[in-house]
Amino acid sequence: MNVQFKKGVLDLCVLALTAWEDRYGYELAVAMSSKFEVAVGSVYPLLNRLTQEGYFSTYLQESPEGPPRKYYKLTPLGHSHLISQIKEWRTFQLAVDELIKEGVER
């Protein structure tokens, strides 16, 4: 997939994954890289950036085995950002579909 296109969508997807439940970094990183061609390692900087921008807050929680895990929680700001991103995506998707129909599937 085209890199420029992907980068914008990655933010949306990682926010979407945390809409209903808080998740820890590894979960998010693996989920993202199984769907898109991204190295797991570059998901963590992405999480960092979204945290800095105020879309995530993080907290540590004990795990059954070993040291505590860092969880990512969607903030109210993150939530409204997610909603607006989804809207934008839907509009975009609709436009692409329409043009494909018009140009290819006639």
Partner: peptide, 22 residues
């Protein structure tokens, strides 16, 4: 944490490093 979590999933250190990337 990535290495720890990967180990819990039964993945080797090599596999964990490889999925992180360069």
């Amino acid at each position: 944490e990535h290495f720890r979590a990967a180990a819990e999933q039964g993945r080797s250190e090599e596999a964990a490093a490889a999925e992180l990337g360069d």
